[in-house]
Design a protein around this nucleic acid. Structure first.
Length: 470
RNA sequence: GGCGACGUAGCAAAGUGGUAAUGCAGCGGUCUGCAAAACCGCCACUCGCGGGUUCGAUUCCCGCCGUCGCCUCCA
């Protein structure tokens, strides 16, 4: 069975084929670091991390490139507003974002190129387009000549005529057509600028991705990804630039994730999370409250292509899911290694293995894959209750850990947040409470448990003694 | 207005041309001193509405209603 992936370009599922057998070249649009990153950015990063992990699980070698657009209008605007150097600001924010991705257990990409490190390649790219007649210089700017690109609009399903019929385009006298877009922008005073054949300036918005893609992955790639808000104009323009220069198809698969949304408390309308709307939950804020696995579960629980509405209930639900997954990894309590329960568990493992692959092969159906894991969780817990232990039990847990790992879930035991030193005190209270229980002082024992619960420490009395977690 | 996506139980959310996964919540039971956790059982005669194709549609087609995204910076 081959993997099926939804391709925005064809608007249908297609079997995965790669340019080079066994290798996937994947370019994913990263962020423009001009302000704190929010969980919408995290969603995109997690989605493509899961794609990458699953492709590797299926035996592909994945070259995964994620860019930072560290010079553009927004960065400059923001830097001016806070009185910072633009490049210093974006560099700092980009590094911060990388740290947060690590906290979310996103595997490091093969490379994280930045515009400021790609200027010569961008300049050559623009020069090439000018030479081929696809671009023209005007007063220090360089524009892409959209009318020269015959299939412009093929990704977003728009025709140039329709687009021009709208009145949304600003009329710029320097442009031949209102739909033309800037490849290179002439420097204004006090802006970062680089020398070029057209005078000092900096790259326009879309060109950097084309140039970085070619630089790091070549003229043709297998998968190009990003949020679906980038389909137009960003990805449309990337296609136009790249294919006009090389004369070859740019990316085989265009993969887009849906937007993370929030309910606006004022209007009660659902809306996209974005910096410009000011309705963002930052990654830092989320991670203050929840484990990175909780976020990953939120993302995995629905189709990556669908919009995902975030609220605190969603977070709470997924925290419970995480706890359930963790309980399955708790040790065996018995030692049975033979019998129907043992066989049933082995069967459940095989079923899970197969179901997982079937789900993920179908356009990365992570919600379906997760359902398979929960079936395995139940089988493991059930086996533990029946006294199953030994190698078969350990193997089942190992398989669960492995498949969850393919989704990027750590399933690490819960660590006390904040003060790490509460352990001995909790242990002390537990042993005192258990003394009380021995002499049937239940009222006092229950009081200790209740008070601890209020303080965020949960006690569970089991046959093996009392367990606690925060 | 144009392009696109979506509308499945209280909530979240998979899925298939032949009568609906999974998680949370809820209900009953086992276990427990009592809880919690775990386990067992129950919980959508039904998949926005109206037509059509079909032996049969939630799944395909058409229309309508509703929600969202893009068309301007945006993961």
């Amino acid at each position: 069975m081959t993997m099926q992936i939804y391709n925005t370009l064809s608007r249908k599922l297609e079997p995965l084929t790669t340019i080079e057998p066994g290798v996937v070249r994947m370019y994913v649009c990263g962020v423009t670091p001009y302000d704190e990153a929010h969980i919408g950015h995290a969603m995109s990063a997690v989605v493509f991390d899961v794609l990458r992990r699953y492709l590797e699980y299926r035996g592909y070698r994945v070259q995964h490139i994620v860019n930072f657009t560290d010079v553009d209008d927004k960065v400059i605007e923001r830097a001016n507003a806070v009185g910072a150097d633009p490049l210093q600001l974006s560099s700092q924010l980009a590094d911060e974002f990388l740290g947060q991705l690590a906290a979310l257990n996103v595997l490091p990409a093969t490379a994280y190129p930045r515009v400021t490190q790609t200027i010569p390649e961008i300049r050559d790219f623009v020069q090439g387009l000018v030479e081929r007649g696809y671009a023209y210089a005007a007063a220090g700017d360089v524009y892409f000549r959209v009318h020269h690109d015959e299939d412009y609009g093929k990704l977003s399903g728009r025709s140039l005529d329709e687009m021009l019929a709208g009145t949304r385009f600003e009329v710029d006298p320097r442009k031949e057509s209102p739909a033309d877009f800037a490849l290179w922008k002439a420097a204004r005073p006090d802006e970062p600028a680089w020398e070029s054949p057209w005078g000092p300036g900096r790259p326009g918005w879309h060109i950097e991705c084309s140039a970085m893609c070619v630089k790091h992955l070549g003229q043709q790639i297998d998968i190009h990804g990003g949020g679906n808000d980038l389909i137009f104009p960003h990805h449309e323009n990337e296609i136009a630039q790249s294919e006009s220069l090389t004369g070859q198809p740019f990316a085989r698969f265009w993969v887009h994730n849906g937007m993370l949304q929030l309910v606006n408390p004022a209007t009660r309308q659902v809306e996209k999370m974005s910096k410009s709307l000011g309705n963002m939950v930052t990654i830092a804020k989320f991670l203050e409250q929840y484990d990175g696995d909780v976020f990953r579960l939120i993302v995995l629980s629905s189709s990556y292509r669908s919009p995902l509405t975030y609220n605190s209930d969603v977070a709470a639900d997924n925290l419970r899911k995480l706890e359930r997954l963790r309980t399955a990894l708790e040790p065996a309590t018995g030692t049975t290694t033979l019998g129907p329960e043992v066989e049933r568990l082995a069967q459940a493992v095989a079923t899970a293995q197969e179901g997982f692959t079937t789900a993920m092969d179908n356009d990365f159906n992570s919600a379906g894959a997760l359902a398979v894991l929960f079936d395995l969780v139940r089988a493991i817990n059930s086996a533990r209750d029946a006294g199953v232990g030994g190698e078969g039990f350990a193997a089942a847990q190992q398989r669960l850990r492995e498949l969850a790992g393919v989704l990027g879930l750590r399933l690490a035991p819960q660590q006390p947040r904040g003060n790490q030193a509460i352990g001995p005190f909790v242990e002390l209270l537990i042993s005192t409470r258990n003394e009380l229980r021995k002499v049937k002082q239940f009222a006092l024992a229950d009081q200790i448990r209740d008070r601890l619960t209020e303080l965020g420490v949960t006690l569970e009395d089991g046959a093996q003694g009392t367990r606690w977690k925060v």
